Amino acid sequence: MLERTFAATPDRVFAAFTQAQHLKHWWGPRGWTLTHCTVDLRPGGRWHYCMTCIDPTQGDFHGMNSWGLGVYERIEAPTRLTYTDHFSDEHGAVNDQMPATLADLTFEAVPGGTRVTSRSTYVRPEDLQAVMDMGMLEGIAETWDRLAEHLS
């Protein structure tokens, strides 16, 4: 579980998580940018995106594309968002060789802004270990730092 308070209303924070015009400004760790982002915000709808490494200091990662596909399951604007995040290709075909993440986010108004709580669930313990080994925890920390900057 990850939790962070952002200095913005639940409506603004929820919009940042669900609208392409916002996601393009903050989704991904530092040195990466969204070069493709489409959002169909409805249960069963898809969020298809590509993160591209634009940081030449990241060695072999520089110029790399990482495609993802989120499939929305539950949408209760602006308080809850649940989706399964898959690795995919540029056509949105799911890569079954990589672990999928069931992401359940809540957005709660608190003094000073909105507390976002993210609970990620994996089918097998090995799937969680695989994403941890990829640096996902560091990546999400940088991503949420970028979200805080975008909202300010």
Rank of each mutant, 00 (worst) to 15 (best):
H86D: 00
R80M: 06
E90I: 06
E142M: 06
P78A: 04
G44N: 11
L69Q: 05
T38K: 11
T5M: 09
H22R: 11
M64R: 05
Y49E: 12
T143E: 07
T18Q: 12
V110N: 03
L105G: 01
R124G: 12
V71P: 08
H91M: 12
T52C: 02
I140S: 14
D85I: 05
H91S: 15
F17D: 09
F87G: 02
W27R: 10
P99K: 10
N95T: 07
R115P: 09
G135E: 06
F6S: 06
Q19E: 10
Q129P: 12
T57V: 08
E108M: 06
I75H: 00
L105T: 05
L102E: 05
E90S: 11
D145V: 01
L2M: 13
H48L: 02
G59Y: 04
C50E: 03
S120A: 13
S120W: 12
V110W: 01
W27K: 12
Y72D: 10
H36A: 04
H62S: 12
P56M: 09
L41I: 00
I54F: 13
H91Y: 13
R74I: 12
E3L: 07
A7D: 09
P43E: 04
F107E: 04
K24N: 13
W144H: 00
Q97H: 14
G45P: 03
V39L: 08
T121C: 08
N65E: 12
A7H: 11
T121Q: 10
G44V: 03
R42E: 10
L69R: 07
G135Q: 03
P78T: 01
S88V: 02
V13G: 10
P43V: 04
L23F: 06
N65D: 13
L102T: 00
V131I: 01
P111A: 05
G45C: 05
L41Y: 06
A103H: 13
R12M: 11
F107A: 09
G139I: 04
T57A: 11
R12S: 15
T121V: 01
M134S: 00
A16W: 07
Y49A: 13
V71M: 04
T79R: 02
V39T: 02
L69I: 02
M64T: 08
A130E: 02
T117Y: 14
H25T: 13
D133Y: 05
Q21D: 11
R42S: 10
